[in-house]
């Protein structure tokens, strides 16, 4: 299965006076994971529901492999969706939740059992879970049931709406890995909605950054990270210092972005700009240490590898030098900010 390409063309949607989508055009390539990334209220869930057929756009079209699906109702789209609150059927067992989509399609008996078993194996739930009520399961287990229920119907497209939002860090990491593993093994086109940039980077083949009902930028995680289109993307996808252009070393006006990790602590040559400053804050983050350095009453954040931090013996109040290469400074052509 090559995977169905999903294309949105100039999609608009409003709820009363609130405009949720303002002409979104976007292609989710077949067999890949496309992440819709943005803060709450940016329209990403609305776009997902339009892909599912649960909402109709006011204007614009949705194509599955070039076929117009705009008016095809959800129940005839063959999409698998995992909802933010999971929406498991609370009165059914794990097995029955997963079996529901198959029963609706008239699958019965051994065939039904085999397919439910296969998909529950895939998400890592063994027989001991089959008769459990979904309300008795942990968050991570419920998540697996929701994923299994969406996958069992062998959907054309898998839609995930903040599927891991309520899970704690370790469980989230584990499930992110599994979502990737499962998606790769099934080669199913996936649209994944999240507001969490780390999740987006972890699962996304393609990232679409959204804001106020627009798609602001589309690209691979690396493209978007290294070449953010504007200050908004630069600070939403990854962290960046937003600096005065002249302070950053450019010979122009305006604002620019400088990634935390591109600021070098006590550089030995190999930089184009150097300032002196005082360390005002130190946040230990494990592999990295985040420092805040005051340079002429401007705050600069930098991210230093832990070993480097230890080697340099920096502490609060230390006088340090900070510097960067001009090629790491991201300027923008007067784009929206």
């Amino acid at each position: 299965m090559a995977g169905v390409e999903v294309r949105f063309e100039d999609v608009w949607k409003s709820y009363g006076a609130v405009i949720a989508l303002r002409g979104v055009t976007l292609t989710a390539p077949g067999g890949r994971i496309t992440v819709l990334l943005g803060p709450s209220g940016c329209g990403k869930t609305t776009l997902l529901k339009i892909a599912a057929g649960l909402l109709e756009p006011d204007r614009g079209r949705v194509y599955f492999n070039g076929v117009d699906y705009t008016r095809v109702p959800a129940e005839r789209r063959d999409v698998g969706m995992v909802f933010q609150d999971l929406a498991l059927f609370p009165h059914m067992s794990v097995f029955e939740n997963v079996a529901f989509g198959l029963r609706v399609r008239g699958v019965r008996g051994l065939e039904l059992e085999r397919r439910v078993r296969e998909v529950l194996d895939l998400v890592g739930l063994d027989r001991s879970f089959y008769n459990r009520r979904v309300t008795e399961l942990s968050g991570g287990q419920q998540q697996r049931v929701a994923l299994a229920r969406a996958l069992v119907i062998e959907p054309k497209v898998l839609l995930l709406d903040e599927p891991l939002a309520h899970l704690d860090y370790k469980v989230k990491q584990k499930l992110l890995e599994e979502v990737r593993r499962i998606q790769r093994s099934l080669r199913i086109t996936t649209i994944y909605v999240t507001h969490d940039q780390l999740e987006a980077m972890a699962v996304g083949d393609v990232i679409a950054v959204m804001r106020d009902g627009y798609v602001v930028q589309v690209g691979t995680p690396r493209e978007v990270y290294e070449n953010p289109r504007d200050l908004y993307v630069a600070s939403f996808f990854g962290d960046a210092n937003i600096l005065d252009s002249r302070f950053a070393g450019l010979n122009s006006d305006g604002l620019v972005a400088l990634r935390f990790e591109d600021v070098i602590l006590n550089p030995n040559g190999d930089v184009d700009v150097v300032y002196e400053g005082v360390v005002e804050d130190i946040v230990f983050q494990g592999a990295f240490v985040s420092l805040e350095v005051n340079v002429n009453n401007r705050s600069l954040r930098l991210l230093v590898p832990r070993r480097e931090f230890v080697r340099q013996g920096v502490s609060l109040g230390s006088r340090v030098r900070v510097g960067w290469k001009l090629s790491d400074v991201r300027g923008f052509n007067s784009g929206r900010t």
Partner: peptide, 25 residues
Amino acid sequence: EELEDAARTLGAGRLRIFKDIILPL
């Protein structure tokens, strides 16, 4: 609403949703 949406994406029509989801709950 969300349970109905979930049932719809799984292919269930109105009657099915009423019989299997809404009525039992």
